[in-house]
Nucleic acid binder design. Sequence first.
DNA 1: CGTTAGTAGAGAGTGCTACTATCCATAAGC
DNA 2: GCTTATGGATAGTAGCACTCTCTACTAACG
Lengths: 210, 210
Amino acid sequence: MRISELSRVSGVPLPTIKYYLREGLLLPGSPTAPNQADYGDAHLHRLRLVRALMEVGGLGVTAVRAVLDAIADDRLPMRSVVGLAHRALGPPSDSGPVPEEVARARAEVDRFLEDLGWQVSQEAPARRSLADALVALWRLGRDVGADVFQPYAVAADELAAFELATVPTGAPRAETVERVVVGTVVFEAALAALRRLAQANHAATRFGGD
Amino acid sequence: MRISELSRVSGVPLPTIKYYLREGLLLPGSPTAPNQADYGDAHLHRLRLVRALMEVGGLGVTAVRAVLDAIADDRLPMRSVVGLAHRALGPPSDSGPVPEEVARARAEVDRFLEDLGWQVSQEAPARRSLADALVALWRLGRDVGADVFQPYAVAADELAAFELATVPTGAPRAETVERVVVGTVVFEAALAALRRLAQANHAATRFGGD
DNA sequence: CGTTAGTAGAGAGTGCTACTATCCATAAGC
DNA sequence: GCTTATGGATAGTAGCACTCTCTACTAACG
């Protein structure tokens, strides 16, 4: 199929597809002439993957490229790919000195995770995200420890166990990797949406009169 | 305290505080002279609230303003405030015609929520977010119904019930409202982070050998 | 066979957002 | 009285995700 058909089928504007090609998010089609190239189902699938990561997951172009590169690299062991996807999703990295409050929160989060018995890389960006959430609570006057997250940790653990268990075992590597990455991104958005819906439901009964 | 002290204590750059004042995110201090004003603890707290919503929650300036206005408006019933906060967090709104696939996903999500017995406003933006997640799965070749979200809905329901139950009853309205809004935003980020950490933990055992 | 529409590739431009810099007149602090 | 800080306002910046425009072609249609 040609680029215009790819645009029509996917619903992505043609200039945007060209932009993705320039940015290396899409592989070039196989050229049939100096000014003509052919795109296949693989391109369509990849384009949809890109859009899902950007629109549902909120990733930027560079983050998407990082994820795609990790998926494509056959030498990487599976769990590194998950780690790389998390790195792309998470905050960029430390810039400048870390306030004392944040350092304290990170230490508390580290201890909390250790108490849970979770084996997580020390560099996982989600550690910092969690610490940032704790700092935000402190700054708003909530005098809490990392153990406020306990109920969330229990729920997250159950969900993660379920998710990883439903990943098929025998499938080819690339397929498995993509499935895990898509699951990470899409179900994160879904979980957030469901939590808000559940909140709205409970708020109706809790604050119904007021 | 003066603006420079507010900047020093909060860690927010002074020009940024001025910007927030211009944008109406912060109330002006009480003027002590034509070019001097005094800021109190309320300003500091509000500034921290703004930063938490932006940095942890990822809200934009306009969304933050909408949330703050909703909090401040005493006439609004409590559950409307929650709804407004959700509206600020969620996708902006429909622009242009809705693809048939999306309409189908929305219908399926609506039926799913009805089956759950949840009482949620038809306009809740989280409905659309959830439908978007479902569409993304479809486009990536996963032939699933809205019931893939079942385990997530169970977890979300438990968490929401717990969260709303821990809101103190007797507190002044403004305090309660802020607590609920902060909880929505901060614990959403925390839950996402914990899910990734739990995934990393389970991935280590699941894909340990590879 | 000619006309029209589509194509690859690449550089420049756009619109938006969250800041950031500069200016000025005035006021605080030593 | 001199340096530094302040409020208020206007203008400028950086980054991002596109989107436009241009050139030199070529495919498809009547």
